[in-house]
Design a protein around this nucleic acid. Sequence first.
DNA 1: CTGAAAGCGCTTACAG
DNA 2: CTGAAAGCGCTTACAG
Lengths: 333, 333
Amino acid sequence: MRNRLKDVAERAGVSVKTVSNVVNGYAHVRPETRARVEAVIAELNYRPNLTARSLRTGRTGVIALAVPELDIPYFAELVRHVVDAAAAHDWTVLIDQTGGSPDRERIVADGIRDQLIDGLIFSPLALTGAELARRADTRPMVLLGERDDHGPADHVAVDNVAAAREITAHLIASGRRRIAAIGAQRATSGASARMRLTGYKEALAAARIRFDPRRVAAAANWHRADGAAAVRKLLDSGVRPDALFCFNDTLALGAMRALHERGLRVPDDVAVVGFDDIEDGRFSTPTLTTVAPDKEEIARLAVELLAKRLAPGADGAPAELTAGHRLELRESA
Amino acid sequence: MRNRLKDVAERAGVSVKTVSNVVNGYAHVRPETRARVEAVIAELNYRPNLTARSLRTGRTGVIALAVPELDIPYFAELVRHVVDAAAAHDWTVLIDQTGGSPDRERIVADGIRDQLIDGLIFSPLALTGAELARRADTRPMVLLGERDDHGPADHVAVDNVAAAREITAHLIASGRRRIAAIGAQRATSGASARMRLTGYKEALAAARIRFDPRRVAAAANWHRADGAAAVRKLLDSGVRPDALFCFNDTLALGAMRALHERGLRVPDDVAVVGFDDIEDGRFSTPTLTTVAPDKEEIARLAVELLAKRLAPGADGAPAELTAGHRLELRESA
DNA sequence: CTGAAAGCGCTTACAG
DNA sequence: CTGAAAGCGCTTACAG
């Protein structure tokens, strides 16, 4: 049987209150008493029952992180940074994957095992701001990723329009004119796609290049296979781009594969850029030019926002924080 | 304020016991009573407090999964499958990453927030079987990955020696003779590396090809950068392989990159095979021939072993389960 | 600086 | 089929 606070108290000849004070590092315990209690704790190998503590305090020391898919490299890398950032607050992270399904996202927003977590960091795909605002759970939630709406909750993202504009401008500066955009989405959920398309259009306009809708290829999902399929379809339709702005890196990796199959060389015939700076793009052939969002900063800001909401007396309007990004110029463009 | 069992009981005019019976789906509640209680539950939007339930039952409905790194694609894909398999048992999965550090692995084995979880699925890198056997925590643990030792706990793995033998034999069958092995490790932790090297040697011996230790390249880690570095070093040392058996896919992807830099074509000049069947290898140029462990089966078997240990009256010697694998033949070899 | 006691919200023998 | 009550292991006013 595991030892309880009470066992320690009896053996040390003090009250449970005193043991609790020692365990929680409160001041005002006489040094001799503290030493005696600590000795007994070591002797009995006592460890506090976290469940009981949670029942009492209402805090669990666990936060949840919900992302669409763990095997999308961008999210896997983000998870890693959130786990690291949370460790600085002594939090354990419970990971949830929604698959981007509205039902699953609703469950997450309404509190998956909600008494088990202190707060939620959530990267939704399907849910609108209005739906998010209506959530049943009252625990703090920090949203990750691009949104066109404002205010359902604290929110961290990079400036997608600016980033898309910059990487498109890079293509233009290197002499490309027939730049295709890969990854457009019509769904209400496609805020990232819409913002990246906006940045792309802004860059074209700034260079006085006419926007040609035939050069925009849709992709409902942003996996490698979707990128490859979108490019094949684009080429089959007779479009001859000299550059591709893919809305994320996995699309770009799939796109490069499809170009290769068609005998098109990257970057000689077609330059390719992505978005996310995932590890794969640093070792692909050719290596991938991309937008690198500061994932470490995104994770840190999200965890800090949660910490702020969890602090006593927290209130105030939802925060909108912008994390940094930079261009990572490699071989593909 | 959140509603409690007691609130439901009072409003429905029954005892808390009856409400508890309804909530937990026990029989022997009169239909009218059940209906009335359910109506009140809906009306008050009552949801049981999981922390209190845990304190009482000793079960939390959460299992932990500890892997070295989440942004290694193999583990990311495995995590996904474990989360899916756990959902079938109504378990939530708490993810932990150890970085393969002995200290962190010891903490995991000894029970990270151990009262918060019912059991642990653990893919250790640094800890030996003896250390694992000495763990302080008494909750069930299922080990994942290759081990040379037996018995510290339930264990699921694929037959690494056989898989390595088969993929090496494939290289030999396609006419390769100067086959290098990339990813050897000397550390006590390198069970995967040792077993894959054994399979490689067995295949060479079966084909009467002399084993040449100069064709074995070490890699302390198995990331893309390590694969690239190992190949550069091998080529610089004057070795001229006509094939590479890389001990995992990320090594192989890095290796292909290094070959490309040196002007060597894959598979024309050098055939390359990997191990793991990660998504990247299906879209790399060229696509990667590899060993595909059945990750879904690994995850399912691990979760089922945990379920068995958690069932009443569980006992018996540790189980050693083998999950399936197959060769995935693509362009690189 | 320390103690006795209530209570967090459940589940479950024990009685009826 | 249902109820009254104990107890899981903590924390924390309240007293001293």
